[in-house]
């Protein structure tokens, strides 16, 4: 729905992660659900979307019955944090090696979205918040450079 457009990238990231990392995909959707309910839980379009998303989440939790990360949020937080950092570190290494490609833009951006997801579990540490800001800024900066045919520094 229009009112929830700000969450579209998180929804897309969840879909991309479904096969690669179902646990992170699950928490990405929990984040969307929780945030969307704060933004718009009243319009018919949003209610329809949220009902479908909730069905999906309940089904996913059953399918992931053997994954401790889904049933214990402390373990889940650790899992999502590790995954986000892994993507961040990949992007950072590539960037510092002078290989700032579209894949690196994407990785920085995905990392920044997953840092958003971590806010589900409480306030981000200063270190993570700094990485989140850096990832978002780097994604925008490299994207702009590539678009303008400039070499990112």
């Amino acid at each position: 729905p229009q009112t929830l457009r700000s969450l579209a990238h998180h929804v897309r990231t969840a879909a991309e992660l479904d096969k690669r990392d179902p646990v992170t995909a699950y928490y990405c959707r929990v984040f969307v659900m929780q945030t969307a309910m704060k933004i718009d839980s009243r319009s018919p379009e949003s209610r329809k979307f949220l009902g479908g998303l909730m069905d999906n989440l309940e089904k996913a939790k059953k399918e992931l019955a053997d994954r401790e990360e889904v049933h214990d949020e402390v373990v889940g937080q650790c899992h999502v944090e590790n995954y986000a950092l892994q993507i961040f570190i990949y992007a950072d290494n590539e960037d510092r090696a002078g290989r700032a490609t579209r894949a690196v833009v994407r990785a920085f951006y995905t990392a920044s979205l997953l840092f958003d997801v971590l806010s589900l579990f409480g306030e981000l540490s200063d270190e993570l918040m700094e990485k989140q800001r850096y990832a978002r800024w780097k994604a925008t900066y490299i994207h702009t450079c590539l678009k303008n045919g400039e070499t990112p520094i």
Partner: peptide, 27 residues
Amino acid sequence: GGSIGASTASGEQDELSQRLARLRDQV
């Protein structure tokens, strides 16, 4: 009609909140 619509909406909202809390084992 407005108040019935509003109470239905908040009822559904409560139901979703409860389902989310159950999902996250917060109940």
